[in-house]
Design a protein around this nucleic acid. Sequence first.
DNA 1: CATGAATGAGGCTTCATTCAT
DNA 2: GATGAATGAAGCCTCATTCAT
Lengths: 200, 200, 200, 200
Amino acid sequence: MRARTFTESGRRAQIVRAAIEVIAEAGYAKASFSRIAKHAGLSSTGMISYHFAGKDDLLAVCVTEIEKITGAFMGPRIDAAVGHVAQLRAYVESNVALVGEHPAEVRALIDLVKNAGSQSASVNGRIALFEEHFRTGQAAGVFGRFDPRTAALAFTTGLDAVVAIAAAAVPEPAELTRIGRELADLYVRATAPETTGEPA
Amino acid sequence: MRARTFTESGRRAQIVRAAIEVIAEAGYAKASFSRIAKHAGLSSTGMISYHFAGKDDLLAVCVTEIEKITGAFMGPRIDAAVGHVAQLRAYVESNVALVGEHPAEVRALIDLVKNAGSQSASVNGRIALFEEHFRTGQAAGVFGRFDPRTAALAFTTGLDAVVAIAAAAVPEPAELTRIGRELADLYVRATAPETTGEPA
Amino acid sequence: MRARTFTESGRRAQIVRAAIEVIAEAGYAKASFSRIAKHAGLSSTGMISYHFAGKDDLLAVCVTEIEKITGAFMGPRIDAAVGHVAQLRAYVESNVALVGEHPAEVRALIDLVKNAGSQSASVNGRIALFEEHFRTGQAAGVFGRFDPRTAALAFTTGLDAVVAIAAAAVPEPAELTRIGRELADLYVRATAPETTGEPA
Amino acid sequence: MRARTFTESGRRAQIVRAAIEVIAEAGYAKASFSRIAKHAGLSSTGMISYHFAGKDDLLAVCVTEIEKITGAFMGPRIDAAVGHVAQLRAYVESNVALVGEHPAEVRALIDLVKNAGSQSASVNGRIALFEEHFRTGQAAGVFGRFDPRTAALAFTTGLDAVVAIAAAAVPEPAELTRIGRELADLYVRATAPETTGEPA
DNA sequence: CATGAATGAGGCTTCATTCAT
DNA sequence: GATGAATGAAGCCTCATTCAT
C-alpha cells in the first residue's frame, strides 16, 4: 500500500546512482555529500539530506542497491551449481566474472564493505553464509575438517581483494575467467576432504 | 654529530605511539591530529606538524615503526622454519600469534594498510614477497600449480582479515594458536602439489 | 531560468562589499576570511567558502566589481575627450577625481593590484592599454618619440601612487582637481612631440 | 666603542642575506621565518628571533643593508653629475643600471618597499629627497613649474615599477641602459622649464 | 650565547546537517 | 515537497614568538 518502492522517487535513485559512481571513482573517503551532489547534477547537498536520514542511511541504501545488482548476476549462477563444492566454485567464479559486467558497482561495494566494516549486516551476512555453507558441507562429508569461521573470514576477504584488483583495471573476459578459476581452485583444494589414499 | 636519536627526540616517539594507539582504538578515519595530540597530552596539533612533514609522513612513520615491531616478532620464527611450506606456515602462524603480543600495533597496521592502500610500498612489498615465495616454491616442486599472484593477493588479505578479527577481541593464547594453525592448514592445503594418487 | 541574480544572491554582494572595505581599511595582508566574515556580520568563514571558490576567486570578484564602479565614473569622462593627448589627460584627471567619489574602492583596488600583481589580467590590461594609446598617438604624430612600454609602466604605477596617497586621506575636491591636473601636466609634457625650433 | 658593527656577528649577516634572497625569490608574502631559516641552513627559527627583535626588525635591517649596497653603486654616479637635471637623470639611469649588478637586492627592496609601505622612513625619505630636489631645482630655474610632491611621488614609484619589471627578468646591459635613458628622458622632459619659444 | 622544542593563534577549506522560504 | 543558503565544528597546516636547557 506504500507508494514508494525501494529506491524510487527518481531523485532517490539518482542520488544513489551518483553515490555509487563517486565511491567507485574517488573512493569512500572522498565520497562527501557535496561531491555526490555535484556528480548528480544537484545544486545543493540539502537535497540529499532531505531524501536520506543521514550519510549512513545513504550508504546503506547504496549497499542494498548494489547487492540487488550483484545478486541478480551471481544468484542464478550459484543456484545452477549442484553440491557444496560446485556452489563454492560458482560463488567465487561468478563474483570475479561480475567485475566484467558491473565494475563500478563492484569497486564501490568493496570500498563500502572495507569502510563500513563490521557494522554492516550484509558483510557479516556474507561471512555467515560462507560459514554455514562450510558447516553443512562438512556434515555432508564433501568438505574436509577445518574451522568454518576462519575459512569463511579468510576466503571472503581474499576474494574481495582479488576482485578489487581486477575491478581497478578490468582485464579481458578470458583473463577474468582464468583468475576466477584459479582462486576457486585454491579454495576448493583448501577445503577438500583428506584423501585417504585409497586405491582403485 | 648526533643526527637524530633513536625513534627521535622522545616527542616524536611519543607522537607515533599516540597515533598508533588512536588508530587502534578509534580507527583510521578518526585519527585526526587533534585526537592524536589529545591522546599524547599535547596542547596543540601544531606540535605534530612541527615534528612531521604532514599527515602522510606521520602515518608512514607509524607503519615503519609497527613493521619494526612485527618484524622482530615474526622474523626469527619464519627464519627458523625450513622449506617453503614450513615457512608459509610459520608466516601465517606467527602473524596470528603476534596478536597476543601487540594487539594495538596489529590493529593499527591493518587499518593503515586498508586505507593507505596500494600507495604503500610495504603493502605491495608483502604481496610481492608471497608471490615470489610461491614462485620459487613451485620451481622447487614443493608447491602445486596455481597463479602465484592471485594466491598472494588472496592469502595476504585473508590473513589480515583473520588477524583483524582476532585483534579486535584478543582471545586466549591457545585459541590464537589454534586459529593460526587452522589458517595455515588451509593455505598449505591450497598450495600443495597435486597428489598423483599412486598407491602403495 | 534564473541564472544568478545581479551581483548574486545578496550575500555574495555583501561579502564582496565587506572584503573591499576590509582591504581598504586594513590592507590586503590583513584581509583574512575571518576578518571579512566579521565585517560582513557572518558567523563563520565557511559562508565565504560556500559562496566563493577560494580566496583568489573572492579577490578576483572584488577587482571586477571595483572596476565596474571605476569604469562607470572614468569611462564617460575619457570618452568625452577628443584626441590622444586630451584622453591621456582625461584618464589621469578622472582617476584622481575618482578618489573623491569612491575612496574605499580606490584604496582597495590599488592594494589588490599591488599584491595580486602581474597575475591579474586587468593590471596588465591597463598597462597594455596605455602602451597602445601611446603607440597610436605616436603614429598620429601627437606624441613624441619614446618607448611606449616604459612610459606605460612608469605612468600607470606613478598614477596609482598619487591616487593611493590621495585616497589615504581624501583632500578637498579642489585639491584633488589640482593634483590631477598637475600629474596630467607632467605626463602630457613628458610625452609631447619635440618642438622643432620653429622658424621665424 | 660598541663591539658590533652594523649587520655583523656573522650569524646576523647570514640571516639578513638569507632573508634578502628569500624575498627576492619567493616574495615578501612568502618570506616567513621558517623559510628564511631553511634558506640560511639554520635548524630553527628561534635563531632568528634570538638575533632580531622581531620580524619588523629583521626586515628593517634588510632594507638598511640593501640601501647600503645600492647607495654604494648609485651614490658616486649621482654625485658625479652636475646640476639638478643631470642628477635627476643620473639617479634614474643608475637605478635602472643597478639591476644588472644586484638584481636580487633590487627585487627584494622593491618588494619590501611595496609592503612595508609608508611606515618605512627610507621610503618616505626617498620621496622627500626627490621633492626637495625638485624644489631647489625650481628655485634655480632649471625645472619648470609643477607640484614637487606629486612629481616626486609619481616618479619614484614609476621608477620602481620599471626597475621591478627589469629585475624580474634581467635584460642585456645595453637594453638596461636604453630603458634607463628612456625613463630619464621622460622625467627630464616632464620637469623641463617652459620653452618661451623666443627665437635666437 | 645558542639551540630547538613548544606554544597558541590564526590561516583556508570541507564537512554533514538544518531551516526558512 | 523541494530548495539552497546558512551553520558551526573540525580538518590540516603555518606562523612568529618564547623558554628551558
